[in-house]
Every structure is written in structure tokens, then in C-alpha cells.
């Protein structure tokens, strides 16, 4: 396949950026999107140009590092798929493909397509855990967990923390990310003692980190590579209301 890519190039956090067009010729439809960028970068290096910086690591859709807005959609056109799992067979010969970084106030650009997502860690620090010092745990079978709760908790816990939800949200809100963790821990009996403080503290942390508010636009769930549903935000709001009234 022969394609063109228009890529956001920005040399540093405070530098201005612009879209730059590159030709990519003879790419295999079986190559992943990131492999296409690898191939382009090899050419750029040998031509004495600066290769495109982008985050990636596991390349199997689970680490959450890769983060490209492709043709205006976070992670590109294929539903429930991270950028690294998107393959060139989903595009056509002759396509012109736009590639941009996540854009959100809480995720400043570091270079090219690389952004700073440490704000997500701040949200987890505020309460996205169950306090259990090592070695103090009772036997694993001491507390049965209904299968439907365990399964639903797992579904919420599959969030990979990539930030596509924030990138897609018109308000740059992290509600889906936060709601996924609130749901995961809130469904487990082990998560009950800290349930109220967790939701209050995590919401405060996301406001402090500069994420916007949620207006139920629903863009987040549409791009989520793990299909985290919008209903979890409703659950979070319900938990928050209960917690705040108990205060």
C-alpha cells in the first residue's frame, strides 16, 4: 500500500507544532499502524530528519502506552482497539491519514505524539486502591464474592489507563477513567470500607489535575479500547451523592 500521513510535529513542550506530510510507500496491509510509523522513522533517520516520537510499549493492546488520534478519532477507526492493534488492512491504498497526539489540558504535549499522562496516577493516588498492608490478608476464601459482582468488577478493571476517553471528550474529562476504578473497587466486598472517601477524594484529585467536567457527551465510551460503558459514570455519580450526604 502507498499512503500519506500528516503527523503533528512539535519539538518540545513549549514549542509550537504543525502537521507535516510524509509519503509511506509499499507498506504491508498486515503491518500494524505503529509498524508503519517504525518504517517511516527508519527512512527519516537515514535522511537525516528527526524521527517521530510516540509512546508505545507492549504492542498487544494492554499496557495503554500508545496514544494517537487518527483521522480525528482517538486510537483510530476500529472500535475497541488500541493504536498498536490497528492494522493497515483497515485503510486503503492512497489514503491520507492524519495523526495527532491526545489533546487535553491535563495531558500536555511533551514532544510530537508523546503526552504527559501523570495526572491519571494522581487520581489513583487519591483513593484508587484498597488499603491492605502486605501480609495482613485473611484467607482468599474467607469472603465469597458473587460471580456477577466479580465479573462486573473485572470488566471495569480492564481499563488500561490510556487516556483515549479524555482525548475524545469535548471537555477533557477523566470521568470514565475514574468511574472504572470506582466501579471495580466498589463492587468488591473488600472495597466497601473506603468506598465513600474513595469517590470524594478521586473526584477532587481529577478536578485538581485540570480535567474538565462531564456533560454525558458519551465520546469517551465510543473510543474506549476496552469498551468501558458510560453507565459506570452514573454509578460514580450515585456513589458520590451517597458519600457526600453522609459527610
Amino acid at each position: 500500500m502507498d499512503i500519506k500521513v500528516r503527523v503533528w510535529r512539535q519539538s518540545g513542550p513549549s514549542a509550537g507544532g504543525k502537521m507535516v506530510t510524509y509519503d509511506v510507500k509499499g507498506i504491508s496491509p498486515d503491518a500494524s499502524f505503529l509498524e508503519m510509523i517504525d518504517v517511516l522513522n527508519e527512512t527519516l533517520i537515514l535522511n537525516g530528519d528527526d524521527p517521530i516520537a510516540f509512546d508505545h510499549d507492549c504492542r498487544e493492546g494492554i499496557c495503554g502506552a500508545c496514544s494517537m488520534v487518527i483521522n480525528g478519532v482517538a486510537h483510530g477507526p476500529e472500535k475497541a482497539t488500541t493504536t498498536c492493534q490497528l492494522h493497515m488492512r483497515k485503510f486503503s491504498d492512497g489514503d491520507v491519514i492524519d495523526v495527532e497526539p491526545w489533546r487535553a489540558a491535563a495531558f500536555p504535549v511533551i514532544k510530537d505524539l508523546v503526552v504527559d499522562r501523570s495526572a491519571f496516577d494522581k487520581i489513583i493516588q487519591a483513593g484508587g486502591y484498597i488499603t491492605v498492608p502486605t501480609g495482613t490478608a485473611p484467607d482468599a476464601h474467607a469472603t465469597p464474592v458473587p460471580k456477577k459482582d466479580a465479573d462486573a468488577a473485572f470488566e471495569a478493571a480492564t481499563c488500561i489507563g490510556c487516556g483515549a476517553c479524555v482525548a475524545a471528550c469535548p471537555n477533557g474529562s477523566s470521568m470514565l477513567f475514574t468511574a472504572a476504578k470506582i466501579t471495580h473497587l466498589g463492587l468488591m466486598p473488600q472495597g466497601q470500607p473506603e468506598r465513600d472517601s474513595r469517590v470524594i477524594d478521586m473526584l477532587q484529585a481529577q478536578d485538581d489535575a485540570g480535567f474538565g467536567g462531564c456533560t454525558n457527551a458519551g465520546e469517551c465510551t465510543t473510543v474506549c479500547p476496552k469498551g468501558i460503558p458510560l453507565s459506570l459514570i452514573g454509578r460514580l455519580n450515585s456513589d458520590y451523592r451517597k458519600a457526600i450526604t453522609k459527610r
Binding site: G135, P138, A140, P144, V145, A150, F154, H184, L185, G191
Partner: peptide, 22 residues
């Protein structure tokens, strides 16, 4: 054996059976 106890206490959502056990 301690690892499983620790992880369950942390809320790791392991697969369970209908009786609620792992």
C-alpha cells in the same frame, strides 16, 4: 498461598464460581 490472599484483599477481580469462591 499468601500471594493469592494478598491479591484478593487488594480487590483483584479473579475469576469466581457461582458460589462466590475462586
Amino acid at each position: 498461598v499468601n500471594i493469592i490472599d494478598q491479591c484478593v484483599a487488594q480487590g483483584v477481580p479473579f475469576a469466581r464460581e457461582y458460589g462466590g469462591l475462586l
